[in-house]
Simulated assay, not measured.
Amino acid sequence: MRRRAVTSSAIASVGYEESTAELEIEFVSGEVYRYFAVPRSVHTDLLSAPSIGRYFQRHIRDRYPTRQQ
Rank of each mutant, 00 (worst) to 15 (best):
Y64N: 12
R34G: 05
R67P: 07
V6P: 02
Y16H: 01
Q68S: 15
Q57F: 11
S41I: 04
T20G: 07
R54K: 10
R63F: 09
R2S: 15
Q68K: 14
T44K: 12
V38L: 00
R40W: 04
V32C: 07
S51V: 05
F56G: 00
S8L: 03
V14M: 04
I11H: 05
E17H: 09
R2P: 15
R61D: 13
Q69A: 14
I52Y: 05
T7W: 03
E22T: 08
T20C: 10
T20M: 11
V42A: 01
I60E: 10
T66E: 07
F56K: 00
E18G: 11
Y16M: 06
T44F: 04
G15A: 05
R40P: 08
S29C: 05
T66I: 10
S41F: 03
S8A: 13
V28E: 07
T44L: 14
I52A: 10
R54T: 11
D45T: 08
A10R: 13
V14Y: 01
Y55A: 07
D62A: 12
E24A: 02
Y35D: 06
L23M: 00
S13D: 01
M1D: 09
T7S: 14
A37C: 13
P39R: 08
S8T: 03
E17S: 10
E31Y: 04
L47T: 14
V6H: 00
F27L: 12
G53I: 04
T66R: 11
I11V: 14
R54G: 07
R3Q: 07
A21M: 09
V32Y: 02
D45G: 08
Y33S: 03
R63T: 13
R61C: 10
G15E: 00
G15Q: 06
I11D: 10
S48K: 14
R54M: 13
S48E: 11
D62P: 06
Y64S: 08
F27K: 01
P50I: 03
T44Y: 05
A5M: 05
V38Y: 02
P65H: 10
Y64P: 05
V42H: 02
L46R: 01
S8W: 01
D62V: 12
A37L: 12
E18C: 10
V32H: 01
I52S: 02
M1A: 15
R54P: 03
Y35A: 02
E17L: 03
R3W: 01
R61Q: 11
R34H: 11
V38D: 09
A12C: 09
I25N: 02
T20K: 09
A10H: 03
T20P: 06
Q57W: 03
S48P: 03
S9N: 08
R63P: 04
R58M: 14
E22H: 07
E18S: 15
Q68H: 15
V14W: 00
Q69S: 12
R4K: 15
R2W: 10
S29R: 01
L46Q: 01
A49V: 11
D45N: 15
V14R: 00
